[in-house]
């Protein structure tokens, strides 16, 4: 206990400096941020200087034309119908792709790789790109919206489900293999029951996403309530647009609640 102060300080480890990788990483992040900000001429100044110009328009948004919501009821039905059809087809096809995108259920190495690459390409295109593609192929309307959402849903459903399949208990699979069952049977009986709760909640989640996406779909020509927004926006009918926006908000919240209820009840 008689160690002098100098002895003790010799024993104390020096505070470790941040590692080189961390410094380099942070510097790169900072540099990229500055570069990106310059490229898009990022500034928050207009929020103040242009506020009065914008405020006139925003004021129109603040006085929504509520009756307009019900005048376009057909577009609402269309939006929900589009979401239902696209979810149903998308999650079914997505499930099939998911079984091909997991090593657990796909025992062919090259096929697994091909499916993985294809799926990551499908996922990397934004929903808007699909809408534009299908509008060009089948014309403006709900069909383009449905097809675009199906593609979008396949990507998400397959990714989420494949990750769930990767994590299943392998025991039943070993049992299925030991009894000589085929690939389809073993996937159906040793894997599917295990992933069912997760899969069902992904289905509900994807349905929600499709309702949210309806604005995007419509703006690009894929039908539904989004096309109403597009038309009203281009006619500068901001009071109508804001009524629809508020209504979308309510619908999204309602569907969120509904799917939470269903999840508790059935999953």
């Amino acid at each position: 206990m008689s160690a002098t102060a100098t002895d003790a300080s010799a024993l104390r480890p020096r505070k470790p400096g941040p590692s080189g990788v961390l410094i380099a990483g942070l510097a790169a992040v900072a540099a990229f941020t500055v570069w990106a900000a310059i490229q898009i001429e990022f500034t928050l100044a207009p929020l103040i200087t242009n506020f009065t110009n914008g405020w006139e328009i925003i004021q129109e948004f603040l006085t929504p034309n509520w009756s307009f919501i019900f005048r376009v009821w057909e577009a609402w039905v269309e939006t929900v119908a589009i979401a239902i059809v696209a979810t149903f087809v998308g999650v079914l096809v997505g499930l099939i792709f998911a079984t091909m995108a997991s090593r657990v259920t796909n025992r062919s190495n090259w096929f697994y790789r091909v499916v993985k690459v294809a799926l990551s390409m499908v996922r990397s295109l934004p929903d808007i790109a699909y809408v534009l593609i299908f509008v060009a192929l089948v014309g403006v309307g709900s069909l383009a919206g449905i097809l675009a959402l199906i593609m979008f849903n396949i990507g998400i459903a397959a990714k989420l489900t494949a990750e769930t399949i990767d994590a299943v208990d392998q025991g039943p699979l070993e049992a299925a293999d030991a009894s000589g069952s085929g690939t389809i049977s073993r996937t159906r009986w040793a894997v599917l029951p295990q992933i069912m709760p997760n899969y069902l909640s992904y289905c509900l989640y994807i349905f929600e996403l499709n309702i949210r996406a309806s604005v995007v779909i419509g703006v690009a020509g894929g039908g539904g309530i989004g096309s109403v927004i597009d038309v009203q926006f281009s006619r500068f009918e901001y009071a109508n647009v804001s009524a629809i926006v508020v209504a979308i908000f309510v619908v999204v919240m309602a569907i969120d609640q509904l799917s939470q209820y269903l999840r508790r009840r059935f999953v």
């Binding site: 207009p46 242009n50 110009n53 914008g54 604005v215 926006v245 979308i248 999204v252 919240m253």
Partner: peptide, 24 residues
Amino acid sequence: AVPELVFAIVIMLPILGFGPLAGT
């Protein structure tokens, strides 16, 4: 609950004008 597109249409475009800033 509000899609980004709606933020852009309702608030950003009127104030910030067309261009990447509004989107950002």
